[in-house]
Structure formats: C-alpha cells, structure tokens
C-alpha cells in the first residue's frame, strides 16, 4: 500500500516541492533515479542489466542483460520454462528482480512501477488474454486512454468540459484503431461472444490505442490459425512502421520470429544463450542444441 502512496502524483508533487525548498535549485523527483546511460538516450528504448530472478529457490532468470534499440522488433524465444514470460513480467513490474536493474525511458528501476507503466509509455498484452469481459470491444479499447485523462469522476458524471473532451478524444482514437486492425464488425460485441483470434486482436488494439513507445507482446499468436498469424504479423509490423513503436515479443513459432524480427534473444533455463540478428541466431549451435534441431528454415 505504501508503494501506491509514494507513486501517487500528490505525494510526488509534495516531495519535489519539499525537496526543492530544501535543496534550492537542486531539484530531484522523489522516485526514479537518473539512468547512467545518458550518453545515448535517443537510441535505447529499454535495457535489462544483470537481471536475476528466482521463485523460492528456482532460478527463473540468471544474470540476463539485453539492450533494445528504439523502433526495433525484438523476439524473445526459447524452450518452455526458459523464463520468457518472467522477463515480460519483470519489465511490466509484476515481478521484482533479485538483482539487476531495468533501464526504461532514461530512468533506472529496480522494480518498475506497474501503476505507472502506461505513463512511462509501455503497453503489454497477456498470454492468457486479459480483456474485460464485462465491457464491449469498444469500451475495452477506450479505457486504455486512461493514462492521458485527468478529469475526475464528478466531471464525468456531469459530462461536460474536460470530461467530455477526453471521452470524445478516446472514442475517436478507438475508432481509428478499430479500423487499423480491421475490428469494425466487432465494435459493440461482448468479449465472450468473440472468437479467440479476434480477442487477441482486441487486446492488441487496447495496447496500441495508448500510443506506447514500447509494446510488450506475450505470445500474441498462441493458438492461432496460420491465416490469423499472418494477419497478426502484418499488424505488428504495421504498428511499428506506422507509429514507430519498439516491439518486444515472446513467440514460439520460429518462422514468424525469423520473418518479423530485427533482433532475436534466445533464453534457455533462464540464461541468455544467444543475442543477435535472425541470421546470426539461425546458425548458432547453442541455439540449435537448445531446441534440439527445431530451428529450421520453413
């Protein structure tokens, strides 16, 4: 609960005002520290430095460091249990690493504040779908604009001024994303009535409408038909090309990975065994061994 309070805007304003008063011109924000990698802020989207994570004795991730450049599509691959989902959960602040730091938007974190994730410019999807079943597709998408909204509940109750503007703005952006992802026919449908592939696309829409800088996709194509997968690949690439988003995805389908990615990271039992372009990975013996011959040209 104290984390909630510390991360609330009220506390931060109070803290920075107070510290400003005490230190005069040496103002500091109360929470995040400046990243040491200030020399190349414009190129790095995200980097993990020496991350180790264990769950009660089992080491999920051991000393993993990854450096991701802005605008690239990175795939994280590896056999089951390699720690891939844990990495995404680490980046989204659901887990805290035992060691190491996460560098994001010029700040360095031990534990990424999940509540502030959207405002930091990070969006994610979930492996097992995390849509709001009580809301329609449209409402699932508009709700993602909350990060940019300031109106209070009373203002929304009355429905004028700032609240109205924000609502119309969110609606407009949602409509655009609906068209971008070909989701118009499902606009007012309830989530539970939609096929799996469409639901996955809705989740992508929800992640995109927040206009993130970094997009984390946790197995976005799991359980999809080849046709759906092709469409999804197209959408992911289009999202990067159109909006300049850095995409980090976990994926099992190696063909998809090779075709889509600029950069591939391979994990096995929590250790990074390879890191490079798809071509470099293809020929890497360690990777081939890890998969035991699964990595092939499709």
């Amino acid at each position: 609960m104290s984390q909630e309070i510390i991360q609330s805007p009220a506390f931060r304003v109070a803290a920075s005002t107070l510290s400003g008063r005490i230190f005069g011109k040496y103002r500091k924000t109360a929470v995040a520290t400046e990243s040491p990698r200030k020399d190349a802020p414009s190129l790095t989207a995200l980097s993990l430095e020496g991350i180790t994570l264990s769950f009660g004795g089992v080491k999920a991730i051991s000393n993993v460091s990854i450096h991701i450049i802005k605008g690239e599509i990175v795939s994280i691959i590896g056999p089951n249990g390699a720690g891939k989902s844990s990495l995404i959960n680490l980046i989204s602040g659901i887990y805290q690493p035992d060691q190491g730091r996460i560098h994001l938007v010029g700040k360095s974190f031990r534990r990424v504040p999940t509540q502030r994730l959207a405002r930091l410019g990070v969006s994610r999807t979930f492996q097992n779908l995390a849509l709001f079943k009580g809301l329609s597709v449209f409402d699932n998408i508009t709700i993602a604009r909350v990060k940019a909204q300031r109106a209070t509940f009373l203002e929304h109750l009355i429905g004028v001024g700032r609240a109205r503007r924000e609502r119309l703005d969110a609606n407009e952006r949602a409509e655009r994303i609906l068209d971008f992802l070909h989701l118009r026919p499902s606009r007012d449908r309830l989530i539970s009535t939609l096929p799996y592939g469409i639901q996955k696309r809705v989740e992508l829409a929800r992640a995109l409408v927040a206009e993130p800088d970094i997009l984390l996709l946790d197995e976005p194509m799991a359980g999809m038909t080849p046709a759906d997968k092709l469409e999804m690949t197209y959408f992911i690439r289009a999202a990067r090309d159109e909006f300049g988003i850095t995409v980090i995805l976990i994926e099992h389908d190696i063909a998809v990975v090779m075709g889509l990615s600029d950069h591939v990271v391979v994990l096995d039992h929590g250790i990074k065994i390879a890191d490079g372009t798809p071509d470099e990975i293809k020929g890497n013996q360690a990777v081939i061994d890890a998969y035991m011959g699964v990595v092939q040209e499709e």
Binding site: T114, L117, A118, S123, A130, L131, G134, A144, V146, K147
Partner: peptide
C-alpha cells in the same frame, strides 16, 4: 474483471 490488466493500463 482483471485487476492486473487494469493496473497495467494505468487505471488507478
């Protein structure tokens, strides 16, 4: 429906 997803989106 999904508190974690809401949190990730920035719902307070």
């Amino acid at each position: 429906d999904h508190e974690l997803a809401a949190k990730v989106l920035g719902v307070p």
